[in-house]
Design a protein around this nucleic acid. Structure first.
Lengths: 337, 337
DNA sequence: ATAAACAGCGCAATCGTTTGCGCAAAAATG
DNA sequence: CATTTTTGCGCAAACGATTGCGCTGTTTAT
């Protein structure tokens, strides 16, 4: 084309100043009482040459980027992929774009991502935190609106929206107990994470006083962890446990894979129950009983909370009280235990 | 803190000009022959106050953003989630950040995303295109490095990296024929997309001359489509087909769900075969035979291609010849047919 | 001794937009 | 007709970083 395609170019071609062109094209024409004739001439020229504002310059000047940063501990995990999908849709619906980062469960990478978000001037941040203590997140949260999701910290003033992992695990364990299982292996995810700790607590509380032998093992929300721990527990002792509680769908896959390798069948030889929902779980053999987390709802609440923080931030109003909410999961009963 | 935290502030506090501070902090000290003493004083002060460059300003000035845009047709689809995950990791490893957009199979939203990417000055774009013709993408590709992935266009000068869908579908169909199936229902995804067209072509070519009755139905890579089409095909006529070829894992889920609802069992009553790989497929009942696409490999090649385009673009060198590559899928044989 | 080379750094323009302030002309008021 | 108000628009300074050019002073070559 004609080389440049910015306000200055339109200014040149219409004879109006850059200021006027800017005001017209950013919809502030009447606020600044620009004449009808100017508005028409300018919008016509802008349309003609397909003008599009440079968002980088706009961000620099206005300190708003129409972008939020989202950091998750592993986008390859279907759970976080689903969560990300839900959040991206929500943001999109509000006209915001998403910078997506993956911390891979690493505190260092998480810090980098959060710093990068700030350096790029995002308007807000949604994070599934990985760090073991809230200091850094709180520091970041003091500068830019920040809402935690899925994981959170004790005693923090940050907003968070999570599912009630204590209740979820409690329901699952109680169900196993009711079904008569008495030797239960729980395979956990990342031990330090709040959801995991809450699940362990819910699990232990539910089996307490029922004469259940149990062990909690494992260290990651991964297929590999599920497989390794299951092998370790059952190899050489096929009757070691009568049920397995997998703390995530990924872990479940590892567990089932290992059971099969050992010649055990889930559901009959060993009861299994899982966390997370997933279209596949209904078509496994047997269909898997599981705790479903209301991710859509959690995502909606989190985004809502973030936007009210952002709104206050924009107007330099006092920060609204933090939203700290747990949403209730539900037990989906099938045939695996 | 001390209010601002930019080059000017450091300039004030050290007595050196903004230029010198900039050159030191952006690692160009020796190129511009800055003295040791200046370098030390400045880096010390920068460390003290935790200086971090404003990436928005940097982008505006240098026209580089260390960002690439990624647009997929549905991040909620596990296939694209996996692809996105792979690509984000690759970009991250090269120090690039990712703006992720979801076109939801809508040409309009795809255009919006691509335009937004340009407005934000991304350094490159990776796209799973949705449009039916390449014009718009070619236009964009003329301005900013662009590589297509998973889907592509005929006769385009754009780079693309996809799997060989013709070969994949051919293998699958041939396997069904070899197994003796003669009435095959193929449930396709988005009809106009190149992978889908190639799969249809591969499917039809493979069954040709073998006396196979077949129909190709459906219009989306979704669970709902799989379920709807399966119901329509088998309701009132349980023996309508002896095998179903699902063109994606999501479609497969819908198909199995529908078969069960109709009292049919996949594998025995009706053979099923699927496209895509997925940890769950091995643990369904029965385990599902499927065509696995080498996504990791495709992602690596695509990112590699993108970076060589970006490199040339940065140095205003002539654009290297487009990379147009198909990578070969493999058939994973299990027990569902 | 004079010129040339070089070391070390700053000036000021630039990227594209936004916006407070002010200025002139036109319109309204007394 | 003199004053005030309103209308319509432009000047220029931001936002924070980068970089071509040039300016001083010192060192080296001729």
């Amino acid at each position: 084309m004609n080389g440049k395609n910015n306000l200055a170019a339109i200014s040149d071609r219409t004879g109006y100043s850059v200021s006027t062109v800017s005001r017209v094209l950013s919809g502030k024409a009447e606020k600044y009482r620009i004449s009808q004739s100017a508005v028409e001439r300018i919008t016509k020229e802008a349309r003609r040459c397909g003008y599009r504002p440079n968002l980088v310059a706009q961000s620099l000047r206005t300190r708003q980027s129409q972008t939020v940063g989202l950091v998750v501990p592993g986008i390859d995990n279907p759970f976080f992929a689903t969560l990300a999908s839900i959040i991206i849709s929500q943001l999109d619906a509000r006209g915001y774009h998403t910078l997506l980062a993956d911390s891979r469960e690493s505190e260092r990478e998480e810090r980098q991502a959060l710093e990068m978000f700030q350096d790029r001037g995002v308007d807000g941040i949604l994070a599934v935190p990985v760090a073991s203590s809230p200091e850094f997140h709180e520091e970041v949260g003091a500068n830019v609106p920040l809402v935690l999701i899925d994981r959170y910290f004790q005693e923090t003033s940050l907003s968070y929206v999570c599912t009630d992992n204590y209740a979820g695990a409690y329901m699952a364990a109680q169900y196993l107990v009711d079904k008569g299982y008495r030797r239960i292996l729980a395979i956990q995810g990342v031990p330090a994470s709040m959801p995991n700790r809450e699940r362990v607590r819910g699990f232990l509380d539910a089996i307490k006083g029922h004469g259940v032998e149990s062990r909690v093992v494992g260290d990651a929300f991964s297929v590999e962890n599920g497989s390794r721990e299951t092998l370790a527990a059952f190899a050489g002792n096929p009757g070691a446990y009568d049920a397995v509680f997998a703390f995530s769908a990924t872990i479940l896959i590892g567990t089932i894979s290992a059971l099969r390798k050992l010649g055990l069948t889930e559901g009959t030889d060993v009861g299994v129950i899982s966390y997370d929902n997933n279209g596949f779980l209904d078509f496994m053999n047997p269909p898997v009983t599981r705790v479903e987390q209301p991710l859509q709802e959690a995502g909606e609440i989190a985004v809502e909370a973030l936007f009210s923080l952002m709104e206050a931030h924009r107007s330099s109003l006092p920060r609204p009280a933090p939203v700290q909410q747990l949403v209730r999961p539900t037990l989906i009963i099938r045939e695996s235990c």
